[in-house]
Each structure stands twice: as C-alpha cells, then as structure tokens.
Amino acid sequence: MNALQSLGGWTLDSVQRWGRAAVFLGQILLNIPSVIVRFRLAVVQVFSVGVLTLIIILVSGLFVGMVLGLQGYNTLVDFGAESSLGLVVALSLTRELGPVLTALLFAGRAGSALTAEIGLMKATEQLAAMEMMAVDPVSRVIAPRFVAGFLSMPLLAALFTAIGIWGGHLVGVGVLGVDSGQYWTAMQNGVDVYDDVLNGVIKSVVFGFVVTWIAVFEGHDATPTSEGVSRATTRTVVNASLAVLGLDFVLTSLMFD
C-alpha cells in the first residue's frame, strides 16, 4: 500500500515537473526576441557557458581522439587496414563521440554552473528583487543564458571533434606510422558532409537545447535553500546526462537507419 502510494506520489510529482518545465520553456522561447534585441546580455553568458567550458572540451577531445587513434590502429592493423584509421576516427567523432561526450561534459561543467547560479539567485531573492523592480527575470536572466547555451554547444562539439581528429592524427601518424595522406584521404572519401558531419551538428544542437533547458529549469525550480540548490545541481547533471544518452539513441536510429 505504501509502495503504491509513493509510486502514485512520484508519478504526480513527475507529471507536474514536466508541466512546469514545458511552461517554463514556453516563457523562455517567448523571450528570445528580447534577447536578440539586447544581445550583449547573451554575449556575457556565452563567456561563462562557452568559453569557460573550452579547456575541458579541448583537453577531453584531444585525449579521446588519441585513444581512438591507438585503439583503432590496434584493431585495424590486424586486418591490414590501418590506412582506414582516419575514417574510423572521424566517423566515431563526427557521428557519436563528438556530440555526446561534449554534451555530457557540457552538462557537468556549464549545466551545473547554470543551475547553481540561477538557484542561488533565487535563494538570495535576486530573482524576486528583479520582479519587484518590474524586470522579468525570465527575459533578463534565464533567456540570455538559454540562448548562450544553445549557441555554445554546437561550437564546443565542433571543436571537440576537430581536435579529436587531430589527436587521432597525432597518435596514428606521428607515433604509429600511418601515412598522413592516407589518414586524410580515407577520411575524406568516407565521411559525408550531410550524412555524418551535418547529422552530428544536428545532434549537438538538440543536445545543447535540452541540456540548457534542463539546467535553467532546475535552477529556477530549485527549493530556495542551499540544500535545495545543491540537489537541483545534482539533478541537472543526472537528468541532462540521461536525456543526452536517450536522445542520442533516438536520433541515431532516425538518422542512420
């Protein structure tokens, strides 16, 4: 009986959360024009959402690419196909690892920071103060951050992928002795701009949208105490990561069937 009750409570809770999140997204989207008018607000946010995430993206991308180069080479060399290394590295990165890993890192670095920042603004009554000053916090605080996250994510994913391919080149060509020309040629012959690169970019755009949405919603929906904010931050990372992985499966099956 108790289990049933808590299941019911949980269901009601989640439905309400979804409802609030959807309404909140609607409010954000309605306020996008005001962000475009005052784009400076979004630029400042691109700094904290995008630029400050850059280091971890670049370092991770480089290492993922180097590992792909190493693992790919070890597998391919058994079939005498190490000339296809560039293709393997590039396809893995453009289609999957670039968008997905960037989105996960983005959720951990930028998403959690967004939630914490907005949650703290709520806890310290800054959002309430704005409302009392007749300034809509959604338009002044939330929407610029949303736009910044949405714009930053594809750029970060592209940087991750590009530096990853370079990392694969570094290991494959520099260390393991694959021919540099073959590395690039195999890649260029096998990677399709529309099927692979563009689909990867579409993925990163979708992930950016969802991760940023979750992050700003959790911050705005947080219980205005320090405990509430810390729990909201955790929820952002968990929910955003799960959403990215789930959506990746859906998008992949739609794109590459």
Binding site: M121, T124, E125, Q126, A128, A129, E131, M132, M133
Partner: peptide, 19 residues
Amino acid sequence: LYKLRKSMGMMFQNSALLT
C-alpha cells in the same frame, strides 16, 4: 502590474543585490 511596480521600491531582508 509591472507598470505599477515601477512606482514601488523594495528592500529585501538579505538585500538581494545582483551578485
């Protein structure tokens, strides 16, 4: 409401300055 609020000021308990 927003128009009316422009003619009100409020000082919050924890100041609520924009950090």
